[in-house]
Nucleic acid binder design. Structure first.
Length: 313
DNA sequence: GTAGGCTTAAAAGCCTCCGC
DNA sequence: GCGGAGGCTTTTAAGCCTAC
């Protein structure tokens, strides 16, 4: 159980989060807050509804003592919290959120690369979301995988206890047109940075500007070859919430993003939706049954010494 | 393989500009 | 004068690269 390619990917994505000191420090504060929000004997509803409280959780590490040190790590912390939450809500599905770009399969990395003349810029992706195809190789225990490279040798699923990048790249190449990908641009404040997701979404939507030697994708992989691609924005925001109404420039800048705009609060119509809405909006194809069912099945496995204990709940 | 250096990206608050 | 929009300053974290 929880030994498919997407689920091992998920574990490695979360373990990478805990590999940074920023997230480890924040987690000491966040964990009890999250546990309190969930309450005893929580169900899938409490898990999903954490999306309404992510801003509250994030702010518990702000306030007093928020010097330059925590300030500069704030972006990493917010990205990490969003990544943790999305993976928790998609547990048991074929949806995985990845913060560490080097974990992302190379064909996906290539497809979202923007080429500005000879310059390839692909570092703008805060969180990369992958919906793995609904094909047998992604739904079975990796111990049952039997994949051969072009010269007939078996590709081992694991190397040094980690997913073999060769296998990941092989599959992403073979089944590329069945993959879905998403980018979630995470920013703690909203108004200062709303231009960034707006402009990138424009570039991705236009699929480059051939006359200007600006293009998307390389090595033969392009987002147009994927089943679906979405660009989303997720903010705390650290600014006063009262500053945002349907007519604010910063709100208008992100209302038309292909994947929508979200924040860590309850939904305010025509301003921003709760992050918990991102799943049904963008990634619904990745659930094996549905989000509630998958989470309900997973809850008994979250405890210590269980397969999903890496969430550190 | 490890240590250290370098590059890049990140944020809050303050400041300025401008239209009403 | 007021408030929204946009820009600047400063310091730090993470990750890659290089040298040993």
């Amino acid at each position: 159980m929880y030994n498919t390619i997407p689920d091992i990917f998920r574990r490695e994505a979360i373990e990478a989060l805990f590999g940074t000191t920023t997230f480890q420090n924040c987690w000491q504060t966040w964990q009890p807050v999250i546990q309190q929000l969930l309450g005893a004997n929580f169900t899938e509803n409490e898990i999903i509804n954490l999306g309404d409280h992510l801003s509250t959780i994030f702010r518990t590490t702000g306030g007093i003592g928020r010097g330059q040190g925590e300030l500069s790590g704030g972006g990493t912390a917010w990205e990490s919290l969003v990544c943790w939450y999305i993976n928790l809500c998609t547990v048991g599905s074929r949806i995985v959120a990845i913060k560490k770009m080097s974990l992302v399969p190379n064909p996906i990395q290539d497809s979202i690369t923007v080429n500005y003349g000879n310059f390839a810029c692909n570092t703008e992706s805060d969180l990369t979301l992958i919906v793995f195809p609904n094909l047998n190789d992604y739904n079975i225990d990796i111990a049952q995988l039997n994949l051969l490279n072009p010269v007939g040798q078996q590709i081992l699923p694991l190397r040094n206890g980690k997913l073999n990048k060769l296998l990941i790249n092989f599959l992403a190449d073979r089944d590329f047109s069945h993959y879905e990908a998403g980018i979630i641009q995470c920013k703690t404040n909203w108004n200062d940075n709303a231009q960034i997701p707006m402009l990138w979404d424009m570039i991705y939507s236009a699929n480059g500007f051939p006359g200007r030697n600006i293009s998307i994708g390389r090595n033969g992989y392009a987002i147009s070859g994927l089943t679906r691609f979405t660009y989303s924005f997720a903010t705390v925001p650290t600014n006063q919430r009262g500053n945002y109404n349907p007519n604010s420039v910063s709100v208008k800048r992100v209302t038309n993003l292909s994947g929508g705009n979200y924040w860590g609060n309850t939904t305010t119509p025509n301003v921003a939706r709760s992050l918990k809405e991102i799943f049904t909006n963008n990634y619904v194809n990745g659930f094996n049954t549905n989000i509630r069912n998958d989470i309900r099945t997973a809850i008994p496995h979250l405890g210590i010494n269980n397969p999903l204990s890496y969430f550190a709940l």
